[in-house]
Design a protein around this nucleic acid. Structure first.
Length: 314
DNA sequence: GTACATGCGTCACGCGTCTC
DNA sequence: GAGACGCGTGACGCATGTAC
């Protein structure tokens, strides 16, 4: 077993797997043994690839502890699939699932000292290209990226993730763990994690048992991270936060911007905003809302990341 | 019709705790 | 001390609803 002492050491090792598959770095003897196991499980064993990367590539054996996989370096390893689209674009195949939500203890935690941050503050994201029917030994690793949740993403995103975490915890505190849903939040979700719907666990503030859930990054937010953090692309989107100095949630900003105009006619809004719009244009109402939100683009960055669709209903 | 997001279900393994 | 059991770990896979 290797003791990785620094984050840089872990990243350096991870980068040696880029554009390679496990088959290319594991001995023939071990490959045979793994292929036997794949045969036994008929490719149905969940999380087998993650296990193999930990065991045979990083040579660690973290088990199921609530500490980061690389304990001393403080890095949590996440092996996650990418899909390639027709336009040669990469996107996340699925959400990124973190640790289980402990309903009993999470209600006594604060964001800064949360077990979620303790385990997942620094992530080593290893993205491999998923191809249907291909052996897990042949999946090619495309990106290895060290992501510090508090330092490497924007202040607004960290704030929204914190608010999502607090929303989930507040719901558990209200005795509504059984009513949690992934749709409750924007970037950080609470996805279910159990063998079947009969598997439930107690929650501290209500006798109604709740489904086991884990914190997860939503697929759309992972896609945003892939585009900005891995590919260094600038998104062709506008931000509702761009003129905000304060840190607020998406919901707060939208409410704040829309509230002064509730009950007013479109003509009154145009006068208040001192703008000119063609009322015969097909996107007249949408343009009006864009002016209220102080954005120019048809795409709004925070909506894209949270997979929110703006509908103007008349 | 197709692509995508979400909800829900799946499962082997390892570790800790409980029971005998 | 040994075996049973529960729970958390790792993502994966499918069904369904919705958007484009």
């Amino acid at each position: 077993m290797i003791n990785y002492k620094t984050k840089e050491q872990v990243l350096k090792k991870a980068q040696t797997l880029l554009n390679k598959s496990l088959r290319g770095i594991i001995s023939q003897e071990t490959i045979k043994s793994i292929e036997n196991q794949i045969g036994i499980y008929e490719m149905k064993r969940k999380g087998f690839l993650g296990d193999l990367v930990e065991k045979y590539f990083f040579e660690i054996n973290p088990g199921n502890i609530s500490e980061p996989d690389f304990t001393i370096a403080g890095v949590e390893l996440k092996t996650t699939p990418l899909k390639k689209h027709v336009k040669n674009m990469f996107s996340s195949k699925e959400r990124l699932v973190f640790s289980m939500i402990n309903y009993d203890t999470v209600v006594n935690e604060t964001w800064k000292l949360s077990s979620f941050l303790k385990k997942n503050k620094t992530l080593l994201l290893m993205f491999y290209l998923w191809i249907e029917n291909q052996s897990i030994l042949d999946y090619e690793f495309k990106f290895a990226h060290l992501l510090n949740l508090l330092e490497d993403i924007s202040e607004e995103d960290v704030f929204q993730i914190q608010k999502d975490w607090e929303y989930i915890v507040a719901k558990i505190k209200r005795g509504e763990a059984h009513l949690l849903s992934e749709g409750d939040t924007y970037y950080l979700g609470a996805c279910t994690k159990a063998a079947n719907s009969r598997v439930v666990r107690d929650q501290p503030m209500n006798r109604t048992p709740a489904k086991p859930r884990a914190f997860s990054f939503k697929q759309q937010y992972i896609n945003y991270l892939i585009q900005t953090q891995l590919l260094g692309r600038k998104t062709n989107t506008d931000s509702i936060f761009k003129k905000q100095r304060r840190l607020e949630t998406i919901e707060d900003v939208i409410k704040e911007k829309l509230t002064p105009f509730i009950g007013k006619t479109d003509k009154e809004i145009i006068v208040t905003l001192n703008v000119s719009l063609n009322s015969k244009s097909k996107n007249y109402k949408r343009s009006l809302v864009n002016r209220i939100l102080e954005i120019d683009s048809s795409k709004i960055e925070e909506f894209e990341k949270a997979n929110i669709t703006l509908k103007v209903i008349t």
